[in-house]
Amino acid sequence: MNTIYTSKYFAASQCDNSRRFYIDFGHKTVKFSLCQLLAFRHRLKSIDIEQHLNGENTHGLEVVSLCNREHLFVFNTLEILDLLSLVDGAFAMMEINSVIA
């Protein structure tokens, strides 16, 4: 297992043998195919974070289902921001890895 990127709360890694990605959410580690990871990235990027900051999203929570509803997570504002930096960081690191490989 290779660590790709670690954010404040979460960590992304990949397994070369199974060709899968893993995100460690602290209490649980979830396996992703690239398609599922892209779908997760899209879901995170479609979150209107403004609503968290201007009070429109009163509870400050997002319900996110992963991998075709295999998993269900509830994230708060800080976790969403951290996850965004996790996916951006992970894809950036993988791009660097691909350039030097």
Binding site: N2, Q14, D16, R19, M94, E95, N97, S98, A101
Partner: peptide, 9 residues
Amino acid sequence: MKDLVRQNL
């Protein structure tokens, strides 16, 4: 580390 992104995409 394998380039899994490029392998798939």
